[in-house]
């Protein structure tokens, strides 16, 4: 499923992509000098990407409404990541209430070649833009989520782990005076 869509979309050179993102992050660090701020900015940028990307995603993938949040998780991991990054993620730790899951990224094209300097380890979430993208995209389909990086391979941890928590399902708003 994800592979089909991946074959359809246009590709760019992965090194160009990785280096552009690297330049962006280092420039942010230079400009803000505060790692916490950089994380926040990356997330906001991702949000702005996400709210646009969802349109493209729905148009190309022909995926309908998901039955529950867990189906959403699978779609993000297997189709969304595949379509835009060419990799798939694994969904683990789904909680029984179906309001929370973890995405494990085994392979992340954003971090090719990257080595974090000691002083940024466990502080900078280099790929934090992904959290923003997920939040932005889901918000456009009436799901308000909180998305955080739990672990990052760049900080010598075993895997990259993104936690997604469903905060509320926004109701479809009916325009005022429409009945």
């Amino acid at each position: 499923m994800g592979t089909d869509v991946f074959n359809k979309v246009e590709k760019i050179n992965s090194e160009l992509f990785t280096l552009t993102y690297g330049a962006l992050v280092t420039q942010l660090i230079k400009d803000y000098e505060d790692i916490e701020q950089v994380n926040i900015k990356l997330e906001q940028m991702g949000y702005n990407i996400g709210i646009r990307l969802i349109e493209e995603f729905l148009a190309k993938s022909n995926i309908g409404r998901c039955a529950d949040f867990m189906e959403t998780a699978e779609v993000i991991a297997k189709v969304g990541f595949k379509m835009f990054l060419g990799v798939t993620a694994t969904v683990i730790d789904q909680d029984p209430d179906k309001r929370e899951f973890h995405l494990i990224l085994d392979d992340n094209p954003l971090i090719d070649f990257v080595e974090l300097p000691e002083q940024y380890k466990h502080k900078l979430y280099y790929s934090n833009i992904l959290c923003g993208v997920i939040r932005g995209a889901l918000e456009m389909v009436q799901m308000k989520v909180k998305c955080t990086f739990m672990k990052c391979t760049l900080s010598d941890e075993t895997s990259s782990d993104i936690k997604v928590v469903l905060e509320e399902v926004l109701s479809d708003m009916i325009p005022v005076g429409y009945d």
Binding site: G22, V25, V114, E115, Y120
Partner: peptide
């Protein structure tokens, strides 16, 4: 390969343990 690391600046000492 190391040069492609965005945190390394060209022509500066290489301190990476890797």
């Amino acid at each position: 390969k190391y040069l492609l690391n965005p945190f390394y600046t060209f022509n500066t000492p290489i301190t990476s343990p890797t």
